[in-house]
Simulated assay, not measured.
Amino acid sequence: MAGFELMNKHTFEINTTPGASPGTFARIAAGITNVEPNNNEELSQDRYLDGDGYGETDVIGAQTVLTFTGHRKYGDAAQDFIFSKLLELGPSRRTEFRWTEPDGGIFEGECTIANISGPSGDAGSKGEISFEIHFNGKPNYIPPTP
């Protein structure tokens, strides 16, 4: 699979001690089966008289959101921290997040943990979970070292 990296080569980390410097970053990996990044783009779609009825699109806003799904693993530092926020609102859902790509590029910044769900499922199955990490503002991107 030359040129194609597997998703398990990405590293996702959440700060479990928000406000502390340098913080304690725990890897989001155990029990996680899928992650879906989305730029949640806001579009301006306009039609002008000189376009013969055809429109044009500009991206006028965005927010990077990662949706994680998988199974609840109790005792995992990242999952325990995230699920400890289930009933919390406001600033207590904020922390820092870091996403390292296989080539070494890093997206990092402040985030909010949102839409925490589960565990749920059939009686004989592993507890299914999902949660989202919403970057607050544009993430800082550190390019890979050549």
Rank of each mutant, 00 (worst) to 15 (best):
F4N: 07
M7F: 15
N8R: 03
H10Q: 13
T11I: 11
F12N: 01
F12P: 02
F12G: 02
I14V: 10
P18C: 11
P22T: 00
T24F: 13
F25H: 06
A26C: 00
R27N: 07
I32Y: 03
I32L: 09
T33A: 12
N34C: 12
N34L: 15
E36S: 11
E36F: 12
N40D: 01
E41K: 15
E41C: 02
E41L: 12
E42V: 15
E42L: 12
S44P: 10
S44H: 14
S44L: 15
Q45H: 14
Y48I: 09
Y48Q: 10
L49V: 09
G51V: 05
G53N: 14
G55N: 03
E56D: 14
D58I: 03
I60N: 10
A62Y: 09
A62W: 08
Q63Y: 06
Q63F: 08
V65Q: 03
V65H: 00
V65T: 07
T67N: 09
T67A: 12
T67P: 08
T69D: 07
R72Q: 09
R72F: 14
D76F: 05
D76C: 01
D76M: 00
A77C: 08
Q79G: 12
Q79M: 14
D80M: 11
F83L: 10
S84E: 00
K85N: 03
K85M: 00
L87R: 13
L89C: 09
P91H: 07
R93G: 04
R94W: 12
R94V: 05
T95Q: 00
E96P: 03
W99Q: 00
T100C: 04
E101R: 07
P102K: 03
P102M: 12
P102D: 04
G104K: 06
G105K: 05
G105I: 09
C111V: 03
C111Y: 06
T112S: 14
I113Q: 09
A114T: 09
N115E: 08
S117I: 12
G118Q: 05
G118A: 09
G121E: 05
D122C: 03
D122H: 10
A123Q: 14
G124L: 09
G127N: 05
E128S: 11
E128C: 02
S130A: 13
F131I: 01
F131G: 01
I133L: 03
G137L: 11
G137T: 07
K138G: 08
P139G: 00
Y141W: 09
Y141K: 00
Y141R: 00
T145P: 11
P146T: 10
P146M: 06
